[in-house]
Design a protein around this nucleic acid. Structure first.
Lengths: 275, 275
DNA sequence: CTTGACTCTCCTCTACGGGGAGGCCCTATG
DNA sequence: CATAGGGCCTCCCCGTAGAGGAGAGTCAAG
């Protein structure tokens, strides 16, 4: 019979762990001295201890080990575990990819986050604007038009409104643009305004602070980010206006979010052996 | 000014998280109503919220984010993070490799664990035994011889004693064998017995229960395990006798540990696309 | 005025033990 | 025989990054 300290040395499990495993009923001492409370183990239990240790080294939880001891299907459990580990690995690859992307970039102008936008109903309208700046006059007119067409129409909560630029490339003049705004339910359409169901989407998001002059940098950044980290664009970027001329006087305070819809990420494993 | 629920929807952070971030001083509301205690946020804070969110998505801890906000070197922090993630990934690859190894194996006769054996001083003796069974007569004689040579010699605590089989392959007769036992300090040597410093070692360990007739299976198992999971043997296996004829009558109760010294694991990424 | 949605603070819970306090037990040494 | 030191016991708190919920206060609409 071995006292806990001796068994600890032989099994390479800490005393704390042994007591914990007893509490969790996955490795009970062979006996307990009724007078002193000392736990007593037998050498034959080294096998059981090794089994618990092996499962822990595989990353199984205490509860999973208990299930196995109760007769659960080990193969199935391990198969699930493998799936979970593969997913964990995917997350790590994704993070590594992004970290290396940041490290390779000289300055960190933008922080990219991943978001899930739920499904919603929007009304949309398209037009071609002579100048980019006309956008802030055009958008309110679309809203008024839609409200005239559908009195009592309500915008979604939280509000969600964005513009997409439909030209293949960046243009300064004759910009083809589509505006969309989320509403609570579909309504009447006309030749300018139509309703559609916008499916749930995963997007990459960056916030651009300041005037629109330099917003091209944000587009360039998020595009390169997506490309280098295994995201595939699933549509044109959405420009969401948060703070602007309508509520902030100083151009420095303007705030715009750019959302790039993407498909499931396939993390790329670039060569980072130099790290 | 936005109430916490509104800001939560816009920032895609939960209300709980926002309150937590305030407590941790990494994202403070623009103001707090002195009468009601309501937190009030501004749209301009969406940028800061996105920054926190981006760092969290990279797996940075709250403390690390706080450090960054306090002006810590982001590049260095991310470099360290990348190193940690790479290590995490290595662990996952190792676990995946082992799990797939188990799943491909039909029965789970043995559980392999990884241990670190600390450095120690041992006395060793080599011989060639006519039969494998002679081992249990030979070992005590070596111990007596060593004690005669070094009266007062003390064995290490915990006791550690093992045999290595020095033939290149398995043999039934004329077995070349080396026995070693850990002691507290070196002593006198002769032509049979010599002392040496056994360096710390990482070993794979399996327990074999039952008679020695079938111990070959355990050797085969651990060898195949090492090979298939990217371990490289760093010496002959050590056989440690735990329970045997000296304390257990029934052969079924005998217990032997086999330890295979290995070098650092290089997890193999076999094709598991079918999982 | 009431109701329901929203917010507040405060409490507990998660997994796996690590670290330590306070107290009992055992053995070796003087 | 007395004591000292080490081993063992139980009990409690600690960490992550919030989630979940209780009980109470607040706000806007009907």
């Amino acid at each position: 019979m071995l006292k806990i300290g001796e068994f600890s040395k032989l099994s390479h499990l800490t005393v704390k762990a042994l007591r914990f495993y007893e509490k969790e009923c996955i490795l009970l001492p062979a006996s307990t001295d009724r007078w002193t409370g000392y736990r007593l183990y037998e050498t034959a239990q080294l096998e059981a201890a090794a089994s618990v240790k092996a499962y822990r080294q595989l990353g199984l939880s205490i509860e999973e080990i208990r299930a196995i001891q109760a007769g659960a299907d080990v193969r199935q459990l391990l198969t699930e575990k493998a799936k979970a580990l593969t997913e964990e690995k995917r997350v790590i690859d994704s993070r590594l990819s992004i970290i290396h992307h940041i490290l390779e970039d000289r300055e960190m102008r933008y922080q990219v986050t991943e978001k899930t936008i739920p499904e919603m109903i929007v009304y949309s309208s398209e037009t071609v604007l002579a100048q980019h700046m006309d956008i802030m006059r055009w958008i309110p007119s679309v809203g008024e038009e839609c409200l005239r067409l559908n009195p009592g129409m309500k915008c979604a909560d939280p509000p969600y409104e964005f513009c997409e630029f439909l030209d293949g490339e960046y243009r300064e003049t004759d910009v083809k643009i589509r505006h969309s705004e989320a509403v609570t339910s579909a309504g009447k359409e006309n030749d300018q305004i139509n309703f559609r169901r916008l499916p749930a989407a995963k997007v990459l998001s960056v916030f651009h602070k300041g005037s629109y002059d330099s917003i091209g940098e944000a587009y360039a950044f998020i595009m390169r980010y997506a490309e280098q980290n295994g995201f595939h664009a699933a549509g044109p970027a959405r420009e969401c206006y948060i703070d602007g001329i309508w509520n902030k006087e100083s151009e420095e305070d303007w705030l715009t979010e750019i959302q790039l819809p993407v498909e499931q990420q396939i993390p790329v494993c670039r060569d980072h052996s130099n790290s």
